[in-house]
Design a protein around this nucleic acid. Structure first.
Length: 383
DNA sequence: AACGTCCACAACCGCTCTCGT
DNA sequence: CACGAGAGCGGTTGTGGACGT
């Protein structure tokens, strides 16, 4: 299909917006709403293209935007969601109320990416860079598999969400949780997330499921291509399907209604994050108060696994723990990090650790993401 | 003080997706 | 089904300020 220019670009202003332009745009939208963006500039008396107006509004002028420094909690949210979702900034932004995708993207590129890099963590895979040097022992293979599975699942979830949405559109009378008010009031893009993330939770749980078939170190990772394969391996509570996982979601959203400020966006960020970072996997359930029923089996499974592994306790062997500790120490000061020191402390118990440590690292890391997604979902008014 | 470099952020560009006709 | 318009998204660039020499 032919691509039409968003504007003819003749006589239209580009570059930074002036306060006067902001005022015009703001006043017009407050009075009339934005309506058609293409028609808006002329009506508002602006020498800008509609696209520029839309971006200015969505990224800067919108009243529900929180500006300024990112809290530690937000930083951790971004990092962990990025590990799960990749560069899908809009998806990440839906879990950071009042932050725009553009802002998150900029913050990632200018701060978090560099910080991870300095810490010896690959910003794309979220794994220690040393992993790439240990390919012979199979650890990196396992990490790569986890990463690839996450990417694959991300794509698959999108497709399934799309199917779910289509089925909803086909049948409004179908008694499916997707027809609940939460979903019917969502935009199409927002609608994708609950289904996808709910299933993501199941997937992550299934990875950790009873026989550990999907994550066990040294075990072949099963193909995630079959929904049945993981639902069969998962504990009953994890049994999934679009309908069931969606139902679960709606249920816990119901439980958490009115607690939109109680989740990951609490402003006591520093202490919270410290607690989160230092918490064991079992403790992390406290952050997902609305979904204990979902998370507990997993926590228990992992906890027992952790207990076994910790019989030979390795201090600071937890990936997330070391990771957040480092970020905290980094953020506590001038938020810059001396590469040497960071790497040194990070490597403590890391790549030099045992295979079971690495296994625990992977589980803990993904579990923290799982919990994060859980808690942030319970915050989202769109769910 | 002048100059150069680095950094952070706003804004732009081009592509894809969705929806209406 | 094909097409076009509008909107959304992610990558990239431009610009101004901070900092170092």
């Amino acid at each position: 299909m032919g691509r039409s220019p968003c504007c003819d670009k003749v006589g239209l202003k580009k570059g930074p917006w002036t306060p006067e332009e902001d005022q015009k745009l703001l006043a017009y939208i407050e009075e009339h709403g934005h309506g058609s963006w293409r028609a808006l500039p002329a009506k508002a008396g602006l020498q800008r293209c509609g696209k520029s107006c839309r971006l200015r509004w969505t990224n800067y002028l919108r009243p529900d935007i929180k500006r300024g420094k990112f809290s530690l909690q937000e930083e951790q949210t971004i990092i962990q969601l990025h590990a799960l979702l990749g560069n899908r900034w809009s998806a990440i932004a839906t879990h950071l109320p009042k932050r725009t995708d553009n802002e998150i993207k900029n913050y990632w590129n200018t701060h978090l990416k560099k910080r991870l890099d300095k810490m010896g963590i690959d910003p794309m895979t979220h794994k220690p860079k040393n992993d790439t040097l240990t390919s012979s022992d199979g650890q990196s293979k396992n990490s790569a598999n986890l990463s690839h599975m996450a990417q694959w699942e991300s794509a698959r979830l999108e497709a399934e969400a799309r199917l779910a949405r289509q089925s909803k559109l086909r049948s409004n009378s179908f008694t499916n949780p997707l027809n609940s008010s939460e979903f019917s009031s969502s935009t199409s893009s927002q609608m994708n997330k609950p289904v996808g993330l709910a299933q993501c939770l199941d997937i992550l749980k299934a990875w950790n499921g009873g026989d550990g078939a999907m994550v066990g170190l040294g075990c072949e990772l099963e193909s995630p291509t079959s929904t049945l394969s993981y639902s069969e391996n998962a504990p009953p509570v994890s049994t999934t399907g679009i309908g069931e996982s969606s139902t679960t979601f709606v249920d816990f959203v119901g439980n958490s209604s009115g607690s939109s400020e109680a989740g990951i966006m609490k402003e006591e960020d520093e202490e919270d994050w410290k607690g989160f970072g230092n918490s064991t996997v079992a403790n992390s359930v406290s952050l997902t108060s609305g979904i204990h029923d979902i998370s507990l089996p997993v926590e228990n499974a992992w906890e027992s696994e952790s207990l076994r592994a910790n019989s030979e306790h390795v201090p600071s062997g937890n990936f997330v723990e070391r990771f957040t500790d480092l970020l905290l120490s980094t953020a506590g000061g001038d938020r810059s990090l001396s590469g040497d020191g960071a790497e040194e402390s990070f490597n403590c118990g890391g790549p030099s650790g045992s295979a079971s440590d690495q296994y625990e690292d992977d589980k803990n890391y993904w579990n923290s993401i799982l919990n994060l997604v859980n808690s942030s979902n319970s915050d989202s008014p769109t769910f």
